[in-house]
């Protein structure tokens, strides 16, 4: 369709390709480098060179962090919160999103209420008080319930349900089905791909979240992986975080390799779902941009 107008444009094109490649390389480099270091051995560090490639690939760091009870436990908690939290998200968001597509008394007020909640927030402390008054401090539910619905996702999902032709619902209503049955037996099965996309986004959010845990959980035994990761890497206290036994302290690989391995383990689930995310997200964002 488009033809090159001049040789100058062809050079411009080549320049564009090269610069994009450099940008992508710069963005990818940290992941690459951290992966490499996480597999490096003590010998690599003693060479005191800039390491780009381990001379000797070892799993010491990974073996070490998985020996830690605290680390394994934090992974379990993160998995629980991610799965449980996403199920709650989907249940709450999809029922309300669908109900808001049906004509009913007070719908306008509800929609306004949802939108207002996106524009104004009373801040951290009142929300914290509510969680506290509900007795959820130190409970994993505090990481799930306060974010049960993302208003933005709710509106995007409602937009998606609105795109399902009305005839489907009307026909079922004439056949004597009620709205709950229609939602469960017709709408949900029709929306599986969309729900999968929302599930992925919610799940990534749960896996990555750390602040609610810092806010609401005082008991380190309940910390999810991101909080433990913060302690290992950012606060630079791998020993305190991993709760070493004497054995572990004596057989410790270089701390950098431990820190980098912990980062890789915490990122791996994201990398695993990334291809699926990618398939969905462009569509999702576009639905969202059509306000």
């Amino acid at each position: 369709m488009l033809k090159y107008a001049s040789r100058g444009e062809r050079i411009g094109d080549a320049f564009n390709y090269v610069v994009l490649a450099l940008i992508a390389a710069a963005m990818f480099f940290p992941f690459f480098y951290i992966t490499m270091i996480s597999f490096s051995s003590l010998a690599d560090f003693l060479r005191s060179d800039v390491i780009f490639w381990p001379q000797q690939w070892v799993l010491d760091a990974y073996r070490y962090i998985f020996q830690s009870h605290a680390f394994r436990q934090s992974l379990q908690i993160s998995i629980f919160i991610t799965i449980g939290g996403t199920l709650v998200n989907l249940a709450f968001t999809s029922t309300m999103a669908y109900a808001l597509t049906r004509p009913h008394f007070g719908r306008r007020a509800l929609l306004l209420g949802v939108i207002f909640s996106m524009l104004f927030s009373p801040g951290l402390i009142p929300s914290y008080m509510v969680v506290k008054e509900l007795g959820l401090i130190n409970s994993l539910w505090a990481l799930i319930l306060p974010g049960a619905i993302s208003p933005f996702n709710l509106i995007v999902m409602r937009q998606f349900f609105l795109s399902i032709p009305d005839e489907v619902t009307e026909a079922a209503l004439l056949d004597g089905a009620n709205e709950v049955q229609i939602f469960w037996k017709i709408i949900l099965p029709l929306s599986k791909p969309a729900l999968a996309a929302f599930a992925l986004f919610y799940a990534v959010g749960h896996w990555n979240s750390y602040f609610s845990a810092i806010l609401y959980l005082n008991d380190p035994a309940k910390w999810p992986i991101q909080v433990v990761l913060r302690q290992i890497v950012i606060l630079n206290q791998p020993n305190a975080a991993l709760g070493d036994t004497q054995f572990m302290l004596e057989h410790q690989p270089p701390p950098q390799t431990i820190q980098m391995a912990a980062i890789i383990v915490a990122t791996l689930p994201i990398l695993l779902v990334y291809p699926f995310l990618q398939k969905h997200f462009a569509k999702g964002v576009m639905i969202g941009s059509v306000k």
Binding site: A91, F92, T93, T95, M96, A97, Y98, A99, L100, R102, H104, L110, G113, V114, S117, F120, S121, P122, P126, S127, M129, V130, L134, L145, P146, A148, I149, P151, L154, N178, E179, V180, F183
Partner: peptide, 21 residues
């Protein structure tokens, strides 16, 4: 039945978005 479907979401917004107000 629509209100039944609305219930969890409305409760959520009341408790976690409007009570804090």
């Amino acid at each position: 039945f629509i209100y039944l479907l609305l219930l969890p979401g409305v409760l959520y917004f009341l408790i976690f978005r409007y009570v804090p107000m």
